[in-house]
Amino acid sequence: MTCDKARRLVSMRIDGTISAGDLLNLDEHLVRCTGCSVVASDLERITANLRSIEHVQASDAFLDNVRQRLSELPDRSRRAPMLHSWYRPLGAAAVAITAAAVLITFQLRNTSVHEDRAAAVHGAIAQARVQHMALAASSPLEDITVATLNGETDVISAQDSDP
């Protein structure tokens, strides 16, 4: 038997929960092992000391103080209707369904707004591109190019996709 095992058994012996076989083995170990024997003696003394601490008694005012605190509770806490066990999952399901519905509505609305905005931007760019082609044809030194505009289109699309 290891010393660790022996010391755990000492703790169980103090509580009276050790088996007869373990008790026999422990006694044999304690005869041979001075270290465990000292530990056993210390633990017994500490436990006896703890058990000898006198229990306090609550004062007569204790009940009055509790009553006072209860009287200060809001009515809902004091007289909460009893929630039957079948009712609670139903309530949780209702909350989950409502939350899901709100989330989906929000997403749809968000998608719709997003699509409207994207269509408007693309329309404006297409119109600008036509105007630019006319401008480029009439003034070849203008530094705005179709390529730049196409790049801007990509940039706007990318920005628009951000949440």
Binding site: R7, R8, S11, M12, I14, D15, T17, V39, L43, I46, T47
Partner: peptide, 9 residues
Amino acid sequence: KSRLFHARM
């Protein structure tokens, strides 16, 4: 049991 043992030790 284990916690009790460790607490006492």
